[in-house]
Design a protein around this nucleic acid. Sequence first.
DNA 1: TTTTTCCGATACGATACCGTTGCGTTTCGC
DNA 2: GCGAAACGCAACGGTATCGTATCGGAAAAA
Lengths: 205, 205
Amino acid sequence: MGLGYQASGLDDSMSDERRGRPLDAQRNKVIHSSTLSLMGEYGYDALSVERVAKLAGVSKATIYRRYPNKMELVLASLDHNLYGLPMPDSGTGLGDLMQMAHMIRTYGLNNETRCMFGTMMTARVRHPELAKAVHERIVVPRRQRARSVLERAVKRGELPAETPLELVMDMVFGAMLVRLARGEAVSESLAEHLVKTVWFGMGGR
Amino acid sequence: MGLGYQASGLDDSMSDERRGRPLDAQRNKVIHSSTLSLMGEYGYDALSVERVAKLAGVSKATIYRRYPNKMELVLASLDHNLYGLPMPDSGTGLGDLMQMAHMIRTYGLNNETRCMFGTMMTARVRHPELAKAVHERIVVPRRQRARSVLERAVKRGELPAETPLELVMDMVFGAMLVRLARGEAVSESLAEHLVKTVWFGMGGR
DNA sequence: TTTTTCCGATACGATACCGTTGCGTTTCGC
DNA sequence: GCGAAACGCAACGGTATCGTATCGGAAAAA
């Protein structure tokens, strides 16, 4: 993408040919995680570089030595702190979908997700590149995984070939998200009901 | 509640006993609509009173003469600019649900909705009263209407008595919302597919 | 008519944040 | 060790915003 800070030698894969003391990789991590943590608490607008520095126990100059501005700091943090995405494999499509719903319910319904999604929605007009980045680096991978799972179900003949898979995922995640937005819990039985409604409503078996 | 500006005589229902020139009701309207318009464009954080004043063609002092601070301005604007909520009545529960989905699709999938919902999500930690206000004054009335429609369908025997009506609404609106968040359109046929999936998945007839 | 209050304009202080810079110190490659 | 660059600290200029205050003029109640 040609981001400025990469030209400064931050790129991991390339050998650092600068002479003096190198950037401390340990500090990169704490900066990234602090940034994401505050993003999940405040959202982009109310996130300040000073707070990131304080939380990370790092000087502000140390941050600006790595990234030219706040936006690049956030974008880089999004890149470097992606958790793993385990592929469910219960043997049946319905079981897989249920497992994914369970994972969302367990790990995805928290302040971070709500704030990150809220930021993505609010930012679309004023900070389109931020919205795009959150979408590409957080939303897309998860949707891609879900799509793979559902495509497998179609191949198995558990779902009709013409099933709009996008809609399946939108219904499951969307329903959970609006409850998260309202601050309401998603019980295990509700999640189960949700998945079954979508699955059988789509003609699954 | 004891809001400051009500003590200043802004309360509509009570007779204004102050002596001099009264507040211009015409200016109230333009201030409220300007506030909501900018809320739908920027979100709460990036909303500035100066911008509201400029858009409304009004002095900043005129705003602060009415509301003690930015938060009260936004809360009051949310109160005073609620559009009507027509009740669908197509004769069948499925038709009603379809009509509601159509209304959301036509009037609800825009920048304002996205930004307002995003603000509600992002604000929940730092501005809980704002999130609560958006919820109570925008979300709740719409959900109440949807619930009434679905309860009628249950009474008619078109939906099982034990149907979790909350979930029905969450699925329909949630699926549309996540598409809105991603900036993707909701076609007429997709909305139809969505509603039918929920309806028949829930055991409707 | 008198008095009270609104209104627009404008300036103001306070605060917060961005991004930059300088300095003395520390760490690392060579 | 030497030199180069990172690091923490701190200060800075610039900008934006909040909320207050002051002013002259206009409007409307009393």
